[in-house]
Nucleic acid binder design. Structure first.
Lengths: 233, 233
DNA sequence: GCAAAAGTGTTATCCCTACACCCATGA
DNA sequence: TCATGGGTGTAGGGATAACACTTTTGC
């Protein structure tokens, strides 16, 4: 038996007995830059939402793990790799993408700001950091994803050591406190913060001092277990 | 231009220029029955994993919202509807389903045990409740889903009022305490529990008493905002 | 010497924990 | 009257929150 197909259908060579949605991953990458919580966005060069900004992300390769997809898309679109990544939520409203049905498995990620030079140095990809309180209009439902990611991040500061993922290898206690203050958006008491953070037993002095201006030098600290996020409480 | 297709390909009428995974939802429904935390499983009548037990769930209809899919599958396979449902995690290991690439967006749900009569009364669907510490071998990666759901449930008892979703409309404080004890798997102090739960300001006395044996009758309570899960702390 | 950030302790308060006895009922 | 679960308060300990001054440096 033989049947005929138009050339348009010929291009579509992956066929299923029932309709299948497309699956993407999108990643909300946070960092702290210029004393602000910032998020990495990419500029869309193609429709839909051409010219708007969006989260980095893209279609899942068949046979590729979800988290691997998120890491690959992040690397391809922004040059960033090797950072802390965690699944956030899966968005699947039927009309969230005008092209076809798309399910987006979203992740959020944190990176120290000193890793960003790599990205800036890479070729002129249309990626940029935006302060969370100054976002451009976003493609798809990405604003919703960002709002959820921000809430999750702030909540997780309270019961885990996730904030260390923002820190470079070595840092001062004041720098660390500033990170907490920026993410939580409130001032913290210096003495209480130091007592608390040291009691967590997650950081140690390097013995070095950092001189940075006309004031007393600060002791430099480092993580005891780099790259581990511990649940506290 | 014309091309030829086999009849097998003809059956596959939904075609895409790139391969698409299938998307399913799976739901871990918890209840408390016979003083035990139990989970609802369905018996698989068809391959793969024919004859094994699995979480209720199934393929997403194109155009259907993810949560709607979870509710529909739950209703179709077990007769349960109108219960508390929350997204859990999305599983997508490339080989988790032998048929094709399947992404499963999982949910967990809680229901009072007095709603279950409906299901038992419905036609002889192969659905049954299993104690969490006595599960049969499960299809796919469903054991992993259940482990995660259980962890999330126990954690959420500590910072939300999710446990009320296990309760019938009215209940005594002892019944409520027993629910907490079963899920957390530890005894709680009666006086401390009562102080704590009343301080949450989520329940109120109905004024009724429940007589249930040769002992003093218990005061009956009800939720102030039925069906709302509040974040506490 | 002065401006600027680093560093340091004590006290009060709140919350959680531990703990034991009387009450109301049915049999 | 007795067995059974329902119902109640207080005291101690630990964690959190409030609060101000001295130190070290660069200019």
């Amino acid at each position: 038996m033989k049947f005929t197909l138009s050339s348009k259908q010929l291009a579509a060579q992956y066929c299923y007995p029932y309709p299948h949605p497309a699956v993407t991953t999108d990643i909300a990458v946070f960092t702290i830059l210029d004393q602000q919580l910032k998020l990495l966005l990419v500029h869309r060069g193609a429709p839909p939402f051409q010219g708007m900004w969006a989260l980095p992300g893209g279609f899942l390769d068949i046979g590729e793990d979800l988290e691997a997809c998120a890491k690959r898309e992040l690397e391809e679109e922004t040059g960033i790799s090797g950072i802390y990544l965690e699944q956030l939520y899966t968005f699947g409203a039927p009309d969230r993408d005008p092209r076809e049905r798309v399910i987006s498995v979203t992740y959020y990620a944190l990176t120290p700001s000193d890793r960003l030079q790599l990205k800036a140095a890479s070729d002129a990809m249309d990626a940029a950091w935006f302060a969370l309180d100054n976002m451009p209009p976003l493609a798809f439902d990405h604003q919703e994803i960002i709002t959820l990611a921000h809430r999750r991040l702030a909540a997780k500061l309270g019961y885990s050591t996730i904030a260390f993922q923002f820190m470079p290898e070595t840092f001062t206690l004041s720098e660390l406190q500033t990170v907490y203050e920026i993410v939580l958006n409130k001032k913290l008491d210096k003495r209480n913060f130091r007592k608390w953070i040291l009691a967590l037993d997650q950081i140690e002095e390097t013995g070095e001092l950092r001189r940075s201006g006309n004031h007393r030098p600060a002791r430099i600290y480092q993580l005891k277990n780099p790259a581990r996020v511990e649940i506290i409480k």
